[in-house]
């Protein structure tokens, strides 16, 4: 297992999680892209030490193909979801002029009702 790969996964995860905590959906999308890469890399690490391409030679000479197949599926799914999030951000942009994630309105209404009752 290579230290460089581990550090990369750590770095990508940290940056990704930081970006996800933002209010702006475009930053969240970037965060998820980074997190997706980190997850795929950790799948590759789980496959063990690197060897020849999975199609060449005998089983002993090949790297483990299973995590690579899993990683490929995960990449396709996260690609599609990134596009969906972009469409969502675009729609929010046309509706409100920005791409910020808003609060739950009903929650706010209930909280306000509570405080106005206390005022009476």
């Amino acid at each position: 297992m290579s230290i460089a790969l581990l550090l990369t996964v750590g770095g990508l995860t940290t940056t990704g999680l930081y970006l996800i905590t933002a209010r702006s959906l475009s930053r969240i999308i970037l965060g998820f892209s980074l997190l997706g890469h980190a997850a795929v890399l950790s799948l590759l690490i789980a496959g063990g030490s690197p060897r020849a391409a999975p199609i060449a030679g005998t089983a002993e000479q090949m790297s483990n193909p299973v995590p690579q197949a899993l990683a490929l599926t995960a990449i396709v799914i996260s690609f599609g979801l990134t596009l969906f999030l972009l469409a969502l951000a675009g729609r929010q942009q046309t509706l409100s002029g920005d791409d910020l994630v808003e609060d739950d309105l009903e929650d706010g209404r209930i909280a306000n009702a509570q405080s106005s009752e206390e005022d009476l």
């Binding site: 997850a39 690490i45 899993l70």
Partner: peptide
């Protein structure tokens, strides 16, 4: 408008759980 607003929270939360699922799969495979 309210669908897009609440949809964002829904998608982001579930996407985070899915990503954690992938990390978990790597953990189990390793």
């Amino acid at each position: 408008r309210d669908q897009i607003r609440s949809g964002m929270t829904y998608v982001v939360m579930n996407l985070l759980a899915s990503t954690l699922f992938l990390f978990g799969l790597a953990l189990i495979y390793a």
